[in-house]
Design a protein around this nucleic acid. Structure first.
Lengths: 165, 165
DNA sequence: TTTAATAATTCACTAAATAAATCATCACTC
DNA sequence: GAGTGATGATTTATTTAGTGAATTATTAAA
């Protein structure tokens, strides 16, 4: 074995690479369509998904420093996509919320790739879906040992709900 | 719908997100261990994999402008990781090559995540491997319509399963 | 009531990325 | 074989992301 071109490990890694690449390119395009940058879009998606988030939690979820979040939120505020609101429980904290503009902008986003994926996925036979999910989860397990919080951000409920993947 | 429980589409997207996240975090760590930035590491991996590459092809493969490649290569040259060599066929072109330092630096890199993945993958039963590959390729097909050149860069090298390409 | 620790921000700085302009070289066509 | 246009790499100027360190306000603990 392992004589010809690629062995299975390589094939799986190459497929993974294709997935990664497609996703990254898609994120760029989507962000551009929305009129913000990819990083800013990520913030919008998380905030929209949880309806509210503090800079602290955003920083953690995006694996980025709080300082970075501050500047991203600054720019989104300047574009009218999100707003800041003081927390009442703890006055050190600030809640970032979507504006109506931000929410509707997200909803109107094309989201071409995800729509295609969701449609293709929905078109699979039941057992195929199950197999795909289990395969993906298996790969994810192999990759992230310390089981990071890889929460939603992409509930695909409605086809249009821009999510990042 | 979509209250608390996720449907299969969501589950698959969440798994995908975990894969993406693990990969991104890993790329950061690995780059730091190597002593370069993630973008610079990507250049090194491609160059090392093909033994030689022009800025043009690097730009295409990384989906980035040539100008960006120029500055990345500048920095790698400054760090002694790669070198430039004039092409003989077309004197407009330049070939980027690994230095010995660059090559050995790459080889000595920890590469923890990929090793873990490769080991886990290698430990699967034959039919499981086959199923995983087919699932991943299926997902990749769903995601990237226009079938971009998603070649290697993640060839599994170190663990002896390597092939070259 | 001091003293810690926490949450967000500001500041100074580096890295990555782009578009636009420039320069050299190649490929044609006349 | 001279001129024209396309191509490959670079330079310049600018924007965006990202960081660590310092700062400010607030909470929590001693």
């Amino acid at each position: 074995m392992t004589e010809k071109s690629y062995d299975r490990t390589d094939e799986s890694l190459i497929a993974l690479r294709r997935i990664l690449r497609a996703t990254e390119l898609y994120a760029r395009d989507l962000a551009q369509a929305v009129g913000v940058t990819p990083a800013q879009l990520r913030v919008m998606q998380i905030v929209d998904d949880k309806t509210s988030a503090t800079p602290k939690t955003l920083a953690k979820q995006m694996s980025v420093s709080q300082a970075t979040i501050t500047t991203l939120v600054d720019k989104l505020v300047a574009r009218g996509m999100v707003k800041r609101e003081a927390s009442e429980l703890d006055r050190r904290q600030i809640n970032v919320l979507m504006t109506d503009l931000g929410h509707s902008t997200l909803e109107k986003a094309p989201d071409a790739l995800q729509q295609r994926y969701v449609r293709a996925f929905a078109g699979l036979a039941d057992w195929e879906q199950a197999q795909l999910v289990s395969s993906l989860e298996r790969v994810a397990d192999m990759l992230d040992a310390q089981n990071i919080d890889a929460s939603p951000v992409l509930s695909s409920g409605e086809l249009g709900l821009g999510k990042k993947l």
